[in-house]
Design a binder for these strands. Structure first.
Lengths: 189, 189
DNA sequence: GTCTATACCGAGATAGAC
DNA sequence: GTCTATCTCGGTATAGAC
């Protein structure tokens, strides 16, 4: 499944073939259908859910090592930039890539990606909420931060420049801290 | 070429076939190769460049009708949300979609997408620059705004919710105005 | 230059021996 | 449950009549 993940990051969902996956995983094609009777789409769903949870847990680690959600987010963006550069600008997030490809084509996969994003939103929003931001506002900012991250992947990869992601990280942090400031001291600035 | 554009927005680059394009454009397959000897990739490059310039000009219109770059950006995001909803959540931007799919696979296409993004960055940065923001800082914020837009497309489509884009628009506006404020009154806040 | 027919290949999926 | 051989379909691309 790690093999599938990497292939998705390299070429996306549609362009990745079962033959390639079979070769990279050193497992025959038949085995794929043994574990995933639904074929490619079912395999992709499993990859999306698994990777989504792994990334969520990774972010939680960043939060634990930071003194504020804004700081954690900025560090997370920087980490993604490192990953991007050291991988030769592979897509850091197969989930968003798959999501964009299948959003109007495969309802089941679309929902799987949507569920993953929602867990990310909740996790990040919980962190922001600690700063005294109301839940709905926190969720809204969280969504924008995740959108900025996903879009940052596109620009950084296409321009082959990891700094795009680092700058985006600073902006993401600013978004969070500004929201917190507005929530706690309503009339400031 | 409009047909190709719509198909890319629906299914992405790889999943769109020449047969579909041929059918939608009501033109035989041979004609495609007559105008684009390089086949699918060359056609895609033309679509990317053309659509990219069209969107850039559209944004310039928004700027002309707004009283500030931040307002123009927010309105642009809202317009994208309308488009998204009324199209059944087709990808509003085939450019970013193609970019994400081919970034590590087709160098020529990747560069085409990169050039388009760069024209967008320059156009938006010029608007932000008018507010007194230094050029490099303006370009950096512009990139983040575009990243937020592209990522907003992913989340909004996957969650089937145009409001994601509207909220992102408010954040984008905030990013711009905060940058301008920091640049003009260095010690404020 | 427009269009049709087709070559050729590789896709996802499956059947069935082991 | 593992693996191989293969089915069938649909992909890109091209050749060649009009």
């Amino acid at each position: 499944m790690t093999a599938t993940n990497e292939l998705f990051r390299l070429k996306g969902y549609t362009a990745t073939t079962l033959a390639e996956i079979s070769a990279a995983a050193e497992a025959p094609v038949g085995s794929i259908y043994h574990f995933f009777p639904g074929g490619k789409a079912e395999l992709a769903e499993a990859v999306v859910l698994e990777t989504g949870e792994a990334y969520r847990e990774l972010f939680v680690l960043f939060v634990a090592e930071s003194s504020s959600p804004g700081e954690a987010v900025e560090a997370f963006f920087s980490g993604a930039a490192e990953t991007l550069e050291s991988s030769g600008f592979l897509d850091p997030c197969p989930i968003g890539g798959v999501g964009r490809e299948v959003a109007n084509v495969d309802e089941r996969l679309r929902r799987a990606v949507g569920r993953v994003f929602e867990t990310w939103v909740q996790t990040l929003a919980a962190g922001v909420g600690v700063l005294g931001v109301p839940a709905d506002r926190a969720a809204s900012v969280a969504r924008s931060v995740i959108a900025l991250l996903e879009g940052g992947f596109v620009l950084a990869r296409v321009e082959r420049n990891g700094d795009v992601l680092r700058h985006a990280g600073r902006e993401a942090r600013g978004m969070i801290e500004r929201t917190a400031a507005a929530a706690t001291v309503p009339g400031s600035c």
